[in-house]
Design a protein around this nucleic acid. Structure first.
Lengths: 215, 215
DNA sequence: TCGGTAAGCTGACGTCATGACAGGACAAGT
DNA sequence: ACTTGTCCTGTCATGACGTCAGCTTACCGA
């Protein structure tokens, strides 16, 4: 499954090469956190990694290509988000617990990877299929679980027939992602982190079950 | 209030100058719609506007500066979003109507300005105060109206005490913005535009009132 | 131990964008 | 026609981009 790592000109990368490659990725990651995407230059990344621009181009076609690589790594990590919802109940107090833990885990994941997720989001919004699919890959686990939950409740008649589970799940996930991206925004809007979370959890619970949580 | 339009080196711009300036802004706007933000170059904008890069730099310090200008224009337009909520009721059928019209108007506004809003969002997420304030300016009208609505219902005891109106309003607005940015995403997730809207409206209604809408 | 081969890196180069300036073109008033 | 101030562009130094040939290093079989 894991194809060999290759340079742009087709050579297979050995131990040393892979180390250099990874170092470049790490440095790029750092740069993305500290300066605007538009201002990230190959030459700076290379300098930071203690190598030359030519080396960068040996491993990646361009900055975008390297970003995709980082995002891909993160996406596989992101599969861990599934566990936030795997086998959880949405009924009664357990439901409130589920919602809270989902919000907590999701925000934490986003905070940890905010720089790269910003870029993925931008790429997806710009219509780039590669970023777009990547974003789906990251969010799919949560999205599907949520959609299943809604569909399940719907089958039991506890949620209206005319609700579209996929639409609701997608909207809730989009909300979580957007709030996570602009966490700082809220704090200067007079809403503290600690206050934000339970309110988000309530919205998620409301969206999934159609009812206020029992706490 | 509207200070005279000035060039970078301090001269006041005359009629012809303002026309050129505006043409540059329009062309930049177009470029943002058709190519990734990272690849938008001053030289391309200038060429498209039938002028030279030097002219661009006479009116704007850089691409970012010009983007801020466009966004500022859009922000004043965006004040019209207030009307979507001005004096509306959230009770009974009227509440459902309100939610629907809010979603409709918001999505339409975002669709019309998606290119520039993408960039504003990115800038804000990257922590740039200027973009950040601009984003607030655009969303404030809707956000405040929503927060007021929630606070009002709360005062009447129809919404729980421990709900934070600002947090809920902010989250809902973030959701609307995020969904609008990734509208295409939903369609390839098997959710059509027409289906999306009522589900979004339901979520908004749920979030504001804590109850399912009566249709 | 030695030489062959492929991996790994970089100096150097042509190309292009950036941003600054000085000076020419142009419109408006006299 | 002449002056004045606005407006635009040719030109230039600087620096990033992306490519290539060629040098160095590591590995491996004989």
């Amino acid at each position: 499954m894991t194809g060999q790592v290759r340079t742009v000109d087709g050579r297979v990368a050995g131990r040393r090469g892979q180390a250099t490659r990874q170092k470049l990725l790490d440095c790029l990651s750092e740069m993305l956190s500290s300066s605007p995407y538009r201002d990230v230059k190959v030459i700076d990344v290379a300098r930071k990694a203690g190598t030359s621009p030519a080396t960068f181009y040996q491993y990646f076609p361009d900055v975008e290509g390297a970003v995709l690589e980082i995002a891909e790594q993160m996406a596989t990590e992101g599969a861990a988000l599934t566990e936030l919802l795997e086998g959880r109940s949405w009924a009664g107090k357990a439901g409130w617990q589920t919602a809270q833990e989902l919000v907590d885990g999701f925000l934490e994941f986003w905070r940890r990877n905010d720089a790269i997720l910003r870029v993925v989001d931008l790429g997806a919004a710009e219509g780039d299929k590669r970023f777009y699919k990547l974003r789906m890959k990251i969010l799919n686990s949560v999205n599907n679980s949520l959609a299943d939950a809604v569909a399940g409740l719907q089958a039991k008649g506890r949620v209206d027939k005319d609700v579209n589970p996929a639409a609701v799940a997608g909207s809730l996930v989009a909300m979580l992602a957007a709030v996570a991206s602009h966490q700082k925004g809220f704090s200067s809007w007079g809403v503290k982190q600690a206050e934000l979370k339970p309110n988000l959890a309530m919205l998620v619970h409301l969206g999934v079950t159609g009812r206020k949580p029992t706490k």
